[in-house]
Lab assay of single mutants.
Amino acid sequence: MASQGTKRSYEQMETDGERQNATEIRASVGKMIDGIGRFYIQMCTELKLSDYEGRLIQNSLTIERMVLSAFDERRNKYLEEHPSAGKDPKKTGGPIYKRVDRKWMRELVLYDKEEIRRIWRQANNGDDATAGLTHMMIWHSNLNDTTYQRTRALVRTGMDPRMCSLMQGSTLPRRSGAAGAAVKGVGTMVMELIRMIKRGINDRNFWRGENGRKTRSAYERMCNILKGKFQTAAQRAMMDQVRESRNPGNAEIEDLIFLARSALILRGSVAHKSCLPACVYGPAVASGYDFEKEGYSLVGIDPFKLLQNSQVYSLIRPNENPAHKSQLVWMACNSAAFEDLRVLSFIRGTKVSPRGKLSTRGVQIASNENMDAMESSTLELRSRYWAIRTRSGGNTNQQRASAGQISVQPAFSVQRNLPFDKPTIMAAFTGNTEGRTSDMRAEIIRMMEGAKPEEMSFQGRGVFELSDERAANPIVPSFDMSNEGSYFFGDNAEEYDN
């Protein structure tokens, strides 16, 4: 993207840094990872977990959730003011799984939030270390993106479920800051804005008074975040219109849905970061690795190297396929839920299948599930090659597409044709070009129609051997075009429920 120079890199967003050079960025990201790792080690000690239990991804998720809940100030305040039966607002906890007599047992633990905050700050040299908290939120978000298709949420806001490739980060909490905003897809931002506008339509006082002023500035800020994701002048001009509207209503909703559809071809720039579970960072720190000293990046080879040398386990339900569970977590670790499966298959070195073909449910185990038949197995999170994460949407291309997802959002900077089903997408653009945004709409449609099938995206960008740390010898991959490109292809993934 041309304006790259004016933006802070995501590592800076990730670490609240002012302008830093590459070495400083690597050190501050490393410091953040160190903090998460030290916190995780301490929690495993508190909970008396064995090494194996500490490497269980379900335990990692519970521990991450506990610290996120302990620092969720708004919710904590709300819980104190609106006490609900049987919930102690000062405590947080969740299921911890232990191996007892050759069987997995679930144990519900409860801790004072104050105590968890103390352990977290102690692991982070006394700081609140917001960057580390956001990092864990993005890992949870990436896992949700890989596990669930947001059909219901899309339909509720009037969008087409086939636009799911635009929904990265749709389950990120509001408090995820600049680093969170960077990884949100165009569809996620559109959905947040539509929800806001709908509230304004239904509630006369939404934009009024002292609160209304705050609401208005939040609305304009979200519009600017979305505008910054678009790469064409016409899309940005249309966002200006939406932002400046005196009284946002149905016309703005129409414009936003139009823009979301246009992003299936004229893709937005959305950041991709490899955020790993805390149970990967903990053992690495415990083994003596100093992330701050060595430096770390979320968008280069580092996460690949770390996963190459990590042992992570997962509980497996009786009829689940461990290899499929591994694929789910591998995609989440690489922030690749909406990437082209052919690119992923090449990088991973084994075939990556669409969601609907995987015999696996989510990673988390519900409290009512029976533990008797639970097994555990090693997650295979290694890769054959590594590639640089991208934040450009890439230019655009036609490809055989599917009944489910009709476009992709690249996660890796790797040369390819970008699949999208042009006739299906263009069919949504018939007729409606009147109104105050008509010239911009016409211009956007013209650009979409001009998108050429034979153009290559990320020209000359390749993948790298894991021994090639400096990215000196790019390998331009070859793809098996007979395979499906979309992950949520004609899909039956479970729906995400809060």
Rank of each mutant, 00 (worst) to 15 (best):
R236N: 06
R382M: 04
Q405H: 01
S84E: 00
R213I: 02
Y111L: 09
K48E: 02
S141G: 14
L110N: 03
E320N: 06
N205K: 11
D439L: 01
T360L: 11
D468I: 01
Q399V: 13
R26E: 09
R204K: 08
V408C: 14
A178H: 12
K422M: 14
Q398T: 01
M159P: 01
R361N: 03
R26H: 05
S457H: 04
I33Q: 00
N432V: 10
E484Y: 00
R436V: 03
Y78K: 01
M105A: 12
S326E: 08
R470L: 01
F291T: 06
R348A: 07
A22P: 08
A403H: 13
G94I: 11
G349Q: 10
E192M: 11
Y313N: 09
I301P: 05
C164M: 15
S438N: 15
T232A: 08
F291I: 08
Q149F: 06
R470Q: 03
T134Y: 12
A153S: 12
V299D: 05
E369W: 05
S314H: 03
V312N: 12
S353K: 13
W330S: 10
L307E: 11
E18K: 03
G490V: 04
V29Q: 02
A182C: 04
F39C: 15
S28Q: 14
Q20Y: 00
Y487P: 02
A233H: 10
L226I: 10
L381T: 15
Q122A: 04
K214I: 13
D128S: 14
G404H: 08
G288R: 15
L341E: 09
K325I: 06
I41L: 14
Y78V: 08
G17D: 00
K198H: 05
I194Q: 10
G485C: 13
E46P: 14
T430D: 00
S353H: 02
E484H: 02
G435D: 08
G126S: 12
D145A: 12
E114A: 09
Q168A: 15
I406W: 06
L172H: 05
W139T: 08
P423H: 12
V476A: 15
N397H: 08
D240M: 03
L47K: 07
N59Y: 05
K325C: 03
M137T: 11
W104H: 04
G282S: 12
T232V: 07
L259I: 14
S165Q: 01
G490H: 03
N124T: 04
V183G: 03
S482A: 00
T62W: 03
F464V: 03
F489L: 07
E484D: 10
Y313E: 04
K227G: 03
R261F: 08
P283H: 10
S84G: 14
E73P: 00
Y97I: 07
S377H: 15
G86N: 15
T437P: 04
K422D: 01
D497P: 00
L56D: 07
R221M: 08
W207S: 03
K305I: 11
S326P: 02
S353W: 14
L108W: 02
K229V: 04
M191E: 01
Q168T: 05
S245K: 01
G404C: 08
H140S: 11
G356I: 10
L56A: 09
E80R: 02
I25W: 03
T62P: 06
R355S: 10
